[in-house]
């Protein structure tokens, strides 16, 4: 059962006859992952634009509160850890899928899901807190750019959660095939990418906002 698989030749494996019949000139796994890398680069530019906007507007507070008055580093640190451990769980799911251990894959995906969901919950709580204190996105250009940048990341995580949920069902029904493995690898790229973006948000928005 636990036959070792070579990552980059998923499609040519006889073990998975149920997937697309490979064309000799197309390697589906490498094409898809490369294509997804390119997509991530476009997403990266989307975030880059929001980062630039934040950089331009971070001190334009219109007489309202500045980053120092608003952020609580302790919460943000917990948020960061939760998201990073969600990525660890996602990585473990991928490792288990290499060993074709279906149950373990689903368990680790569920862990990744729960951690990701708690991240979104903490973020939403932070946002509601800000809005309740009268510091919503309508207050100043700084707060507009803050909510947009951090909110876009949160939206990405939420979409990721939906994706994770759909994939848990897929792994459950289809098992670990070249198809589900491919989607799992692509998802893990997405999840790690969001981590990376968060590290930048943590540094540029929260840490640098405190100094």
């Amino acid at each position: 059962m636990s036959r070792p698989l070579t990552l980059h030749h998923q499609d040519t494996l006889e073990a998975h006859p149920d997937t697309r019949v490979p064309d000799p000139h197309q390697d589906v796994f490498s094409t898809t992952t490369f294509g997804f890398w390119v997509y991530l680069m476009t997403d990266c530019l989307l975030f880059a634009t929001f980062f630039v906007t934040f950089a331009v507007f971070h001190d334009r507070t219109f007489g309202g509160p500045s980053p120092k008055d608003l952020f609580d580093l302790k919460t943000v640190f917990i948020e960061t850890m939760v998201l990073l451990f969600s990525s660890v769980a996602c990585g473990l799911a991928l490792l288990s899928s290499l060993k074709l251990e279906k149950t373990k894959v689903i368990i680790w995906m569920a862990v990744a899901f729960l951690l990701g969901a708690s991240f979104v919950a903490i973020e939403l709580k932070e946002f509601t807190h800000l809005v309740h204190e009268g510091n919503s996105w309508e207050r100043s250009a700084f707060l507009s750019s803050f909510f947009t940048l951090v909110g876009t990341h949160g939206l990405h995580v939420s979409v990721g959660l939906l994706w994770l949920m759909v994939m848990m069902f897929q792994v459950f029904w289809m098992g670990i095939t070249a198809l589900t493995f491919r989607r799992l690898s692509v998802f893990s790229m997405f999840w790690h990418f969001l981590d990376l973006i968060w590290i930048f948000i943590f540094t540029f928005v929260y840490l640098m906002g405190m100094v």
Binding site: L45, L46, T49, F50, T53, V56, F57, R60, T61, F62, W137, E138, R139, S140, A141, F142, S144, S145, F147, T148, T152
Partner: peptide
Amino acid sequence: TATLVLLTLDRYLDMHFFTSYGDGN
């Protein structure tokens, strides 16, 4: 895409990226 999102947020959610008040630019 990002720029249009910002304009959309200005128009739909009263944000202040490109308005002449609220320190937008």
